[in-house]
């Protein structure tokens, strides 16, 4: 499916979605409170069927975090990038998608571990790589570790 057609379908699903032009995939920026319903409909709409979440990453921006979902359809082969911006850096919260994509549960734990984005409703939000007593979130730009990180 072409990006334009995809865009039309998505506007029908979520009118307030913002789009970003990207050579490769169609970027959709979704408000956090609408994310869960939107992705559910992405997966369940018959001619979309975005059923395979192949990448979930968090990005640390100066004023907020984005969580980026790369979703594709194993049946039709079209892909989409869904982005969610958090509300500031203090207490970033994004709804969890573990009940839509099982793999999201663990990717979300990774994002929580390294960036500190909290996923609401997540069944088991623990650190995945670092030990539970670790202080701070290493992938944040303002993370300081004078012993282990050598600035270049």
């Amino acid at each position: 499916m072409e990006q334009e057609q995809l865009k039309e379908k998505i506007v029908a699903l979520l009118p307030e979605a913002e789009f970003m032009t990207n050579k490769q995939y169609l970027d959709v920026i979704v408000p956090a409170n609408k994310l869960h319903a939107f992705v559910t409909s992405l997966k369940e709409t018959n001619d979309l069927k975005f059923d395979y979440l192949f990448c979930l990453s968090g990005v640390d921006w100066p004023n907020y975090f984005t969580v980026v979902y790369h979703i594709t359809s194993s049946e039709y082969g079209h892909s989409i990038v869904v982005k969610v911006k958090t509300d500031g850096r203090e207490n970033p919260e994004v709804p969890s998608l573990f009940d839509i994509y099982a793999t999201a549960e663990f990717h979300e734990r990774e994002v929580y571990d390294l960036l500190g984005v909290k996923f609401t409703n997540h069944p088991d939000l623990r650190r995945i790589f670092l030990e539970d007593t670790w202080v701070g979130y290493p992938l944040r730009k303002d993370y300081k570790d004078e012993i282990n990180i050598i600035e270049r």
Binding site: C55, S57, V59, A102, F106, H107
Partner: peptide
């Protein structure tokens, strides 16, 4: 790079 994420296959396969 500002951010480089590696989506590795084994991470998903493990769980």
């Amino acid at each position: 790079p500002y951010r480089l994420k590696l989506r590795t296959p084994n991470f998903s396969n493990l769980f």
